[in-house]
Nucleic acid binder design. Structure first.
Lengths: 228, 228
DNA sequence: CGAGTTATGTCACTTTCCTGTCATAGAAGT
DNA sequence: ACTTCTATGACAGGAAAGTGACATAACTCG
């Protein structure tokens, strides 16, 4: 299902521009020029993100924002506010009130799209807590992606599960048997030494050039992943 | 006691925004715009977390980070760095230097708060593993790590078990046979003299240069671990 | 469906580090 | 001084982990 965006903007031309661009990117777009109506529309169907002009009719954007943040159900919706150039004061108040990002008018649609995308990316996994981070290593459990220093790493399925297993237990020493149970499953009858081999493969995969190895071998006990 | 946060940020408006938001969440906030002053403030009173802008006056953020990591007292403080959009290069170097997380500007206070919270959650329990402490010696059973005066020590498996055995029985004299039973296992047919050798190895490992030896020899009875 | 690629578990071999013992020197108690 | 107990250095054997190779299983893509 494509993410839905609610546009709250009273400049007709701008509103259409936004709608058109967002639609082209595959978003489901609804729009209104009125703050109060915006609140109703949110009630009716919760959008994944809101683009909110700060200067709109009837209810100023800041008030809309405040209302949304007040309600537990809508408090999580990312809000991108549109402000006029130079209204530093507004921007700060906006962020204080709970906006997640701002774009100053005039802006390029491309930039706005990038921001919206960033907001959604940010919002989605943060709800599930699916991004594990350890030093310069990032592991996204939903997209099954791992990066070190921003560079994408290629891990096999087992190596991925293994890394996740470690990242979920920072600094904890786990025995080979525990690793087998956690990564392969309780009922696997796999040789404990096999763990060594996968540890080696994981190390090889995540330690590019001279990176420090985050996996510590604990003789007679198992392995652990460290903060260094 | 509420957690304390140190904000190092030279953009006045942003600094106030952060302070305001963090205070509203119940954090104790101190702030400065200067890297050197930040280091002094940390000396003076250790914060539970630091928010550090990467581009600040006098001392760049990366240097502050490096300094903090160098000192063992401050090395554990979680650092959240603020970088400008697109400074991918900086972000990576930051993480390599020891920052724990990053947020790109502009950002939403909500996101930042969430991150800070996550950092604090993460930092606290990592220190609170099964830690035995005796004077300046710390033994963490879950991470299998031993430190003296903050400096990591390297112990072999047997030495580790032996030290733990003593630390679990402070001030108590135990016979060689008891030690064999407790550390090697009831059914070991090992010479009692061997205990002496391992005691020696343990002493060698934990007594760096002029440190006082915490292990007391009790003639004709065994050994004990003391506070001196 | 089939060729080719990738992933996986095991083995043999190497390397590293640990460990138990002994012989000898030293300290403490009588 | 003599006995008894402990400290220390050395060492060989061995256990544990690292590493490269390989056969097979699983998966991909035409």
């Amino acid at each position: 299902m494509n993410p839905s965006v609610l546009v709250v903007e009273d400049d007709r031309a701008l509103c259409e521009l936004l709608t058109w661009n967002l639609s082209a990117e595959g978003y489901q777009v609804r729009s209104t020029s009125d703050g109060e109506e915006a609140l109703l529309m949110v009630q009716e169907q919760m959008p994944d993100a809101i683009i909110l002009d700060w200067m709109i009719e009837h209810v100023p954007g800041i008030e809309v924002c405040r209302q949304l943040r007040k309600d537990k159900d809508t408090a999580q919706i990312p809000i991108l506010m549109l402000t006029a150039r130079g209204e530093e004061e507004d921007r700060i108040r906006g962020l204080k009130t709970g906006a997640d990002d701002y774009v100053t008018k005039p802006f390029s649609p491309r930039e706005l799209l990038a921001r919206i995308e960033a907001l959604l990316r940010r919002a989605r996994p943060s709800l599930a807590g699916n991004v594990l981070q350890w030093g310069d290593i990032e592991l996204d459990a939903t997209s099954h992606r791992v990066r070190r220093s921003g560079e994408a790493l290629h891990l096999g399925p087992t190596e991925f599960r293994l890394l996740r297993y470690f990242m979920e237990r920072p600094n904890r020493v786990v025995s080979r048997q525990q690793i087998l149970d956690g990564v392969w499953g309780m009922d696997s009858d796999i040789d404990e030494r096999t763990v060594d081999v996968h540890i080696r493969r994981l190390r090889k995969a995540i330690n590019r050039d001279g990176d420090t190895d985050p996996i510590r071998t604990v003789r007679a006990a198992g392995y652990a992943m460290d903060v260094t």
